[in-house]
Design a protein around this nucleic acid. Structure first.
Lengths: 223, 223
DNA sequence: ACAAAAGTGTTCTCGATACACCCATGC
DNA sequence: GCATGGGTGTATCGAGAACACTTTTGT
């Protein structure tokens, strides 16, 4: 096995990814069960060591893909966690990211480093490895704050969606119900949605109009 | 010299600190002139390698103290920069912080790693080492954004200050002039200031009341 | 007297909030 | 016909913006 030597101690650097989606009427987060020590068999955020020639964001995307098979998410750097004792093996500094994706394209598959991959409701998290609970709590706070001044929530929607579904997402993240008319007025006033021309199918009530993003993949800042 | 060996490559990790203050009627930032390669004799942000047993924030405070003699600033993590080639020597990941301090307590002194320490106006920066210009630009954006929803600006004030001085700070960071009456109404409605009882001395106009923070050292979020 | 910044209220505008009924579909 | 969510408009309230003159001090 090759070894890499330095004149002074170097920490290891990882990225960890808190991937959120909406499942049913809950905010959910993707966890993997660790198949090796430390914290063997504990649940943890997907993530892993930064390769020597990849940037941090690429590392986060690669680890997410390798461990869960998921690609194409919205990804944003969250915070860097660096307490000296946060990993029992050696000094490990973790650059945490949070990610958002619509639930419908996600069917996670356990990868090489993970024995199992599963969604957990944010309000029913299991015990977590390392300081990953802190990471998740911070990520959720950031998500909630960012609802108010950006269009991050759109990253949680399928390609087409109804205004009712979008409102539901806002309500779940903010933890409170919203007035339907005011919400629609607000969202439509942004001029970021276009009617797809289609309507909902197979619901046992009046079918809603389906909307899509006028400029898909673009994050907008409000105010 | 001792060597430290690992089974796979480890990046080096540094912290860099963008310390802002207000000098005259300009936003200013503290830079050091590097006394060794790479970028020898270039200006750069203060910062340096994380010790093996210190947390990231402690590292930032220590490096700032060692290189410039400055302590007691407001400090907040900004972003982690990790492009593989951002340092020509080896892979170095930098956790950037931004810091704020009132100009009056600051008399920077060159430390061991810095040949020279100086304030530069934000709008007249010299060429900078590494990606430090990106760091500074991001830090200034964060500072400006945070003015609107927190009381960060108070960290730039001396222990007592006038409302006129505070307004000046807001105007400098936002880059626009503000209405005096509206500003005073807004600031006083926060109920975070207390009159010190004193007034300004030795100005050739009507002396202003001096205020102090009701709870010094506390950051408040507005809205 | 004059220069220079301190101090002080009111009006208006616009965005945010509160609120209730009819509509289209599946069963 | 009834249950279910879709779709629509108006009135009110409050925060933010615009705006000008008097006061106190030093020179």
């Amino acid at each position: 096995m090759a070894t890499y030597c330095y004149d002074y101690p170097h920490p290891a650097v990882t990225t960890d990814i808190a991937l959120f989606t909406i499942i049913g009427d809950k905010l959910a987060i993707l966890l993997i069960r660790r198949r090796s020590p430390p914290f063997q068999d504990s649940w943890a955020l997907p993530g892993g060591f930064v390769d020597s020639d990849e940037c941090l964001e690429d590392c986060a995307l690669r680890e997410l893909a390798e461990e869960t098979g998921i690609t194409g998410v919205y990804l944003e750097q969250l915070y860097t966690f660096g307490k000296p004792d946060r990993d029992p093996r050696e000094r490990i500094i973790s650059v945490a990211y949070y990610a958002l994706a619509p639930a419908d394209i996600l069917s996670p598959i356990a990868g090489s480093d993970a024995a199992e991959v599963r969604w957990f409701a944010f309000d029913a998290l299991p015990d977590l490895a390392f300081d990953h609970r802190d990471v998740i709590v911070l990520a959720q706070q950031r998500l909630r704050a960012k609802l108010d001044y950006s269009t991050v929530a759109f990253s949680l929607m399928a390609e087409t969606f109804t205004l009712g579904e979008l409102q539901k997402v806002y309500e779940i993240i903010r933890g409170e119900s919203l007035d339907k008319r005011n919400f629609r007025k607000y969202i439509l006033s942004l001029n970021l949605l276009a009617e797809s021309g289609e309507t909902q199918q197979g619901c046992n009530h009046r079918p809603a109009k389906l909307y899509r993003l006028a400029q898909p993949g673009t994050l907008h800042y409000i105010r």
